[in-house]
């Protein structure tokens, strides 16, 4: 699904002492099938953007288009339910939203709500629990008896079972250990490819943005600060630092080595071992010239 924001303003509690403008004249486009990272520090407007993506919020001024749905302050599509069926949001700490008696019931809740037939729900529960890497043996267990990591996976399965076309991930790995983080991110990337999803990852992890996304949008104080391919955005270290963001650590390391030894190694996603060879060759080259 194509998504666009056109000159979007969003003001919380307008005309009250708590009035707060979270988004200012924000415009961007996301093409169907893209994996886009939205980064920005605390309070930059990321959460407000997320809530516009499935119509939980509508712009105070401007326009959002999510597929065929157009939302403005005075226009709400008739079929909001269908919009929400197509845009799945994995909120931060999604396991806090588990509530049913069994894992199966919890995963079924979403599709049942959207009127999916019982037989089909059974099928979807099975597919989605397998997609998140949890054994179907756990279907009859209470979700509250599971470990934190398992609970998160079950909560994610609940979103997948609705079969959204757009997947919005709000810091999906917060609180997970490094192993869990890698597993979950790889899982999302696999689903993104296999199902041809449009994926929007909201994250502080520049490493994840670097590794998975086609495009990065940097938000700052509710406006768009930078936008472009991973290479374009992360080549702007000074501008990112200015808004208290940093480039992925691997890029810093390469840059520091280049500066210290007068090398010109270009980072293009190579592995640490490949980089090690380049550094080793580079240092030997220096010796020859001395």
């Amino acid at each position: 699904m194509d998504i666009s924001f056109e000159n979007v303003d969003y003001i919380y509690q307008p005309n009250s002492p708590f009035q707060f403008q979270a988004l200012k004249n924000l415009s961007f486009e996301i093409k169907s099938g893209e994996f886009v990272a939205i980064v920005g520090h605390t309070g930059s407007g990321k959460s407000t953007v997320i809530q516009h993506l499935n119509g939980l919020l509508r712009p105070t001024h401007g326009k959002t288009k999510i597929g065929d749905f157009t939302l403005t302050s005075d226009h709400k599509p008739k079929d909001m339910k269908s919009l929400r069926e197509q845009v799945g949001i994995v909120f931060q700490y999604p396991e806090h939203q588990l509530f049913e008696e069994t894992v199966e019931k919890d995963i079924s809740f979403g599709p049942a709500n959207f009127g999916v037939a019982t037989e089909q729900i059974k099928e979807r529960v099975k597919t989605s629990i397998e997609a998140v890497g949890i054994s179907t043996d756990l279907l009859n267990r209470s979700p509250f008896e599971l470990s934190g990591g398992q609970m998160r996976r079950v909560a994610i399965a609940g979103v997948l079972a609705v079969e959204p076309k757009v997947l919005v991930l709000d810091e999906p790995t917060a609180g997970l250990d490094p192993k869990g983080r890698k597993e979950i991110m790889n899982m999302f990337y696999r689903l993104h490819k296999e199902k041809g999803l449009t994926t929007i990852l909201v994250t502080h992890h520049m490493e994840d943005a670097l590794k998975f996304s086609d495009k990065v949008i940097v938000l700052e104080k509710g406006t768009k600060y930078l936008e472009g391919s991973v290479q374009e955005v992360f080549s702007n270290q000074a501008r990112l630092n200015k808004v208290q963001l940093d480039i992925p650590e691997i890029l810093t390391v390469v840059k520091e080595i280049n500066n210290r030894f007068g090398l010109s190694i270009d980072y293009q996603g190579q592995s640490l071992d490949e980089l090690a060879v380049q550094v080793s060759v580079g240092l030997k080259g220096l010796k020859k010239h001395e």
């Binding site: 490094p178 192993k179 691997i250 390391v253 640490l272 071992d273 980089l275 090690a276 060879v277 080793s280």
Partner: peptide
């Protein structure tokens, strides 16, 4: 134990593996 080691430590180990 399922934990990361610092990127620079890992990179140094990789450099060592490549003869440095």
């Amino acid at each position: 134990v399922g934990l990361d080691i610092p990127l620079v430590t890992e990179f140094a180990l990789s450099l060592k593996r490549h003869g440095m």
